[in-house]
Design a protein around this nucleic acid. Sequence first.
DNA 1: ATAGTCTAGTTAAACGTATAACTAACGAGG
DNA 2: CCTCGTTAGTTATACGTTTAACTAGACTAT
Lengths: 341, 341
Amino acid sequence: MKKPTIKDVAKAAGVSAAAVSYALNGRTDKVSGETMERIMEVIESINYIPDFSARSLAKNQSKLIGIVIPQTESHKQLILENPFYSEIISGIEGKLREHGYHLLLSGVNQGESYLDLSVQRNLDGAILMGIYPEPFYDGFKKINIPIVLIDSYINDSYFKRIGIDDEYGGYLATRHLINQGHSNIGLITGAIRKDGVVEKRFLGYKRAMREANLFYNPDYVFEESMSYEHGLAAGKLIADKYPEITAIFATSDLVAFGTMRSLMSEGKRVPEDISVIGFDDISMSKMFIPPLTTIRQSITEKGAIAADSLIQMIQGRTELDEKEILLPLEVVERGTVKFKS
Amino acid sequence: MKKPTIKDVAKAAGVSAAAVSYALNGRTDKVSGETMERIMEVIESINYIPDFSARSLAKNQSKLIGIVIPQTESHKQLILENPFYSEIISGIEGKLREHGYHLLLSGVNQGESYLDLSVQRNLDGAILMGIYPEPFYDGFKKINIPIVLIDSYINDSYFKRIGIDDEYGGYLATRHLINQGHSNIGLITGAIRKDGVVEKRFLGYKRAMREANLFYNPDYVFEESMSYEHGLAAGKLIADKYPEITAIFATSDLVAFGTMRSLMSEGKRVPEDISVIGFDDISMSKMFIPPLTTIRQSITEKGAIAADSLIQMIQGRTELDEKEILLPLEVVERGTVKFKS
DNA sequence: ATAGTCTAGTTAAACGTATAACTAACGAGG
DNA sequence: CCTCGTTAGTTATACGTTTAACTAGACTAT
């Protein structure tokens, strides 16, 4: 009951193991049509399946793609609870499978460890999302595998980047609120780190305010984390201390959910008393009640495109390659933003 | 700039490759403390990282765990948009990483293909969620790797099962509604397949009704799929045609979201006019407005326990092994169920 | 002193596949 | 007839690790 190897196939087909290997790799210059057929029949009949470990060893390519998603230290588990990540992964996996690659999913705790993984497993490439300390990226350059970065502003031509114009997104969201007559606009957002998406969205917020000749009030920006919980806290604060705020830009849908929840528990109605716009359009946002007005990016498509790009890099087709792909953005009006009367 | 191998280490430490291998595997009977230290220093200094492909080939164990999640034919991508799955995966990944295993994530389209994957990659084990055609399971038995099933009622002692008592869950949900004075209770649920979780929850629903001497009306069960969209459709139907229904048991939170949404667009208030209870308690449910009353199971814990069990099976510790582990269930009262006045 | 036992290694073969280098057979061209 | 080229393979080695089997030397017990 051992699993059949290439040698078993060879024996049964009356050829050498090498011939089988060539056949498997479609080398028509090495095996005749006749022999090819015979080999294939044998493969079918004894149910032979090639071993990727051996192949990986011999060819030094694993057909494995790693995907790294950020990890908070408090959390032992993946942040997959954030639907944004899982939707991206969904997009990535679909595309990879289509192309015969497999997906190795791993969180990363100390930064170093993921590199090990890449080397251990001979990853053919990796997709990183989130933001990491500098040396983390250098490591990948050293081991010299193709990398695509999702939502990163690391400007190094070694990496290919897939993202959106976050500044514009922030601008779009804020302008939408302004267009609806609002002028006291709160911003609830994650930690503003240099070159992170959050910073850019923040910049867009400020630009929209400036363009509309509105006063930018630093007290109105509530910066801490991209979590539901932060939305909760900031919403309460606004309801309690800043009754003059009539609209809020939350830089992720999850944050928007938290915000709306505490706003409502404090007796404010959304959107009648206060408008809220989110960011991302995760699949849950249309389900929310009221359905969330937000900045839409096509999340699973983002994953698919990242996977596509990576595969192209692996296969050495760098010709038509820009180093950055920006996906379109649009505001989708649903039920949480209302004209200020 | 080639990646260092065990031979490089051996040379630098002045020992044989075998010695290094023994050192790496902590065989203190084969290498002295002194030599061990020297080897470790060399490893550190030249930055040697063992190659899993080679190791996998030699040891016939890959330290890779596969996880299979179901795929609808319409959908090329993973059903990771359903937070239930991503939360489970999160739990699995955390535990696996803790034990030095890595996670291979793959959807499965025709059933057959995943088996290939298991063989190709020499998977040490796999975790399956969802429900598949019979032959799918037989395949795994043939290749003889440890398997744990999540939420499955395949009663074969070859497999270890992690789940909940779905019948009891259905009973709990329904009884909660009954306790709140409701008697016309709708059931919105996925396709009832023999031995699926849905069937069991349905059974629990019927038992609760019977025990309370309530009339079981088949017209009140809306069976189609576990999706948001089905919730939407069924909710509308109820609002339109069955105004006498005052409470609904939706067999997943996602379904409940859909139900509530269309109920509300039809002018019904939840929970004032109609109560809704969900099932699962995905992380989004507490964020919903109003927050969803539901049957809580610890989803990420389920994943973690599945991973734990699998690892135990792999390591041959089958002693303390029941073949099935059932996780606790409880109703968590939030804002969508109200006493019928 | 002799045989036996331990310790700390070494050597060699094995895991399953890929591929460079070689070769036998055949036909073509001169 | 001899050489050359082509076709369809085969042989042998390599990929990086593990591990069974062997061994040299030191120590122990008799």
